Amino acid sequence: NKFNKELQWATWEILNLPNLNEEQVKAFIDSLKDDPSQSANLLAEAKKLNDAQA
């Protein structure tokens, strides 16, 4: 289903952001699991944090 694909993509993207630490990655992944419908928003937040920590 649509959410599953978005969830998988967002998870992969977050796991490959170079500037997030392990705790941050885990928090984002946990949030994705809690509410897959928010995957696009969570991914945007993760990318923002990644850029801020570059």
Score class of each variant (00 low, 15 high):
Ala46Pro: 00
Pro36Val: 06
Ala44Lys: 08
Asn19Phe: 14
Lys33Phe: 15
Asn21Thr: 11
Leu32Ile: 04
Trp9Gln: 13
Ala40Met: 15
Phe3Gly: 15
Leu43Glu: 01
Thr11Met: 13
Glu13Tyr: 13
Asp34Trp: 11
Asn50Pro: 00
Ile29Gly: 01
Ser39Asp: 02
Glu22Gln: 14
Asp35Trp: 08
Pro36His: 03
Gln24Thr: 03
Asn19Gly: 06
Asn21Pro: 02
Gln53Phe: 06
Asp30Glu: 10
Asp35Phe: 07
Lys26Thr: 10
Asp30Ser: 12
Leu20Arg: 00
Leu49Glu: 03
Leu7Gln: 04
Lys48Val: 09
Pro18Glu: 11
Lys2Leu: 07
Lys26Val: 07
Asn41Gly: 08
Val25Lys: 15
Leu17Val: 00
Asp35Ser: 06
Leu49Ile: 08
Phe3Asn: 15
Asn41Tyr: 07
Leu42Ala: 05
Asn4Ala: 11
Leu49Pro: 00
Asp51Ala: 12
Ala44Asn: 10
Lys33Trp: 15
Asn19Thr: 04
Lys5Trp: 05
Pro18Phe: 06
Glu45Gly: 04
Leu42Arg: 06
Lys26Ala: 13
Trp12Phe: 11
Gln53Ala: 09
Glu45Leu: 09
Asn21Ile: 07
Asn4His: 12
Ala10Lys: 03
Thr11Trp: 07
Val25Pro: 00
Thr11Arg: 04
Leu20Gly: 00
Lys26Ser: 07
Ala52Ser: 11
Asp35Glu: 06
Pro36Asn: 04
Ala46Thr: 00
Gln38Asn: 12
Leu7Lys: 02
Leu20Thr: 00
Asn50Gln: 02
Phe28Gly: 00
Lys2His: 15
Lys48Gly: 09
Ile14Asn: 01
Lys5His: 09
Asp51Asn: 10
Leu32Tyr: 01
Ala46Trp: 02
Lys47Pro: 00
Gln38Val: 05
Ala40Phe: 13
Asn16Glu: 05
Glu23Asn: 10
Glu13His: 07
Ala27Tyr: 11
Asp34Pro: 02
Asn41Trp: 14
Glu6Thr: 05
Asn21Gly: 08
Ser31His: 10
Ser37His: 07
Leu20Trp: 00
Pro36Met: 07
Ala10Pro: 03
Lys2Phe: 10
Leu7Thr: 04
Lys33Thr: 11
Leu49Asn: 02
Ile14Glu: 02
Leu43Asp: 00
Phe28Thr: 01
Lys26Tyr: 07
Lys48Glu: 09
Phe28Pro: 00
Ala46Lys: 00
Ile29Tyr: 03
Leu7His: 02
Pro36Trp: 06
Trp12Ala: 14
Leu20Ile: 04
Phe28Leu: 05
Thr11Leu: 14
Leu42Pro: 01
Ala40Tyr: 13
Ile29Ser: 02
Ala40Arg: 15
Lys2Asp: 15
Asn41Asp: 12
Ala52Met: 14
Lys48Gln: 07
Pro18Asn: 08
Asn16Tyr: 04
Ala54His: 08
Gln24Ile: 03
Lys33Gly: 10
Lys47Leu: 06
Glu6Met: 14
Lys33Glu: 10
Ile14Leu: 12
Lys26Pro: 00
Lys2Gln: 15
Phe3Ser: 15
Ala44Ile: 07
Ile14Lys: 01
Pro18Val: 10
Lys33Pro: 02
Glu45Ala: 12
Lys5Ser: 12
Trp12Thr: 14
Glu6Pro: 03
Pro18Lys: 12
Lys48Trp: 09
Ser31Ile: 06
Trp9Asn: 08
Trp12Lys: 08
Lys33Tyr: 15
Ser31Arg: 13
Glu6Tyr: 11
Ala54Tyr: 06
Leu49Val: 13
Ala10Glu: 03
Asp30Ile: 08
Gln24Asp: 03
Ala46His: 00
Gln8Ser: 06
Leu49Gln: 06
Leu17Ile: 01
Ile29Asn: 02
Leu7Glu: 07
Glu13Ile: 11
Asn50Tyr: 01
Leu49Gly: 01
Leu15Tyr: 07
Asn1Lys: 05
Glu6Ile: 14
Ser31Leu: 14
Asn1Glu: 15
Ala27Thr: 11
Asn19Asp: 05
Asn41Gln: 11
Leu42Glu: 01
Ala27Lys: 10
Leu32Lys: 00
Gln8Met: 13
Phe28Ile: 04
Ser31Phe: 12
Asn50His: 02
Lys2Thr: 04
Asn4Gly: 14
Lys48Pro: 00
Lys47Arg: 13
Ser39Val: 15
Ser39Ala: 13
Gln53Arg: 06
Trp9Thr: 08
Ala52Arg: 14
Leu15Met: 13
Asn4Tyr: 14
Ala10Gly: 04
Asn1Gly: 13
Asp51Pro: 01
Ala54Gly: 11
Leu17Trp: 02
Ala52Asn: 11
Trp12Gly: 14
Asn1Val: 04
Asn19Ala: 11
Ala44Arg: 06
Glu13Pro: 03
Asn4Leu: 14
Asp35Leu: 05
Gln24Ala: 02
Glu6Ser: 04
Asn21Ser: 14
Leu20Ala: 00
Ala27Phe: 14
Leu7Pro: 02
Leu32Ala: 05
Asn16Leu: 07
Leu42Tyr: 13
Ala54Phe: 07
Ala44Gly: 08
Glu6Gln: 05
Ala44Pro: 02
Leu7Asn: 02
Asn21Trp: 10
Asp34His: 13
Ala40Leu: 14
Ile14Gln: 01
Leu42His: 04
Lys47Gln: 08
Ala46Glu: 00
Asn21His: 11
Pro36Leu: 09
Glu23Lys: 11
Ser39Gln: 05
Lys5Glu: 15
Trp12Gln: 15
Lys2Ser: 15
Phe3Val: 15
Lys48Phe: 10
Glu22Val: 11
Lys5Leu: 02
Glu45His: 05
Ala27Trp: 13
Phe3Gln: 15
Asn16Ile: 06
Ala10Ile: 12
Val25His: 07
Leu17Thr: 01
Lys47Ile: 12
Gln53Pro: 03
Asn16Gln: 12
Leu20Asn: 00
Lys26Asp: 06
Leu17Gly: 00
Ala46Gly: 01
Asp35Gln: 09
Lys2Pro: 14
Leu43Ala: 06
Glu23Met: 09
Ala46Ile: 02
Glu45Val: 12
Asn16Met: 13
Asn41Ser: 11
Phe28Asp: 00
Ile29Arg: 02
Leu32Phe: 03
Gln24Glu: 03
Lys26Gln: 11
Ser37Asp: 06
Asp30Asn: 12
Glu13Phe: 06
Glu45Asn: 09
Leu49Phe: 04
Gln24Gly: 00
Gln8Asn: 04
Leu32Trp: 02
Glu22Asn: 09
Glu23Trp: 12
Gln53His: 04
Asp35Met: 08
Gln53Leu: 08
Gln53Glu: 05
Ser37Met: 07
Leu49Ser: 02
Asp34Lys: 09
Leu15Phe: 05
Asn1Asp: 15
Lys2Glu: 15
Leu15Ile: 08
Lys2Val: 08
Ala40Val: 08
Ala52Gly: 05
Ser31Trp: 11
Asn4Phe: 13
Asp34Leu: 12
Lys47Trp: 05
Glu13Trp: 08
Trp9Pro: 02
Lys47Phe: 05
Leu17Pro: 00
Pro36Thr: 04
Gln53Tyr: 07
Ala46Asp: 00
Ser39Gly: 07
Asn41Pro: 08
Lys47Gly: 04
Ile14Asp: 02
Glu23Phe: 13
Ala46Arg: 00
Glu23Gly: 10
Lys47Met: 08
Glu13Gln: 12
Ser31Pro: 01
Pro18Ile: 13
Asp34Gln: 14
Asp30Lys: 11
Leu7Tyr: 05
Glu45Pro: 00
Asn19Met: 05
Asn19Val: 01
Lys48Ser: 12
Ser31Ala: 14
Glu13Met: 11
Gln8Lys: 06
Leu42Met: 09
Ala27Pro: 02
Ser37Phe: 07
Asn1Ile: 04
Ser39Thr: 09
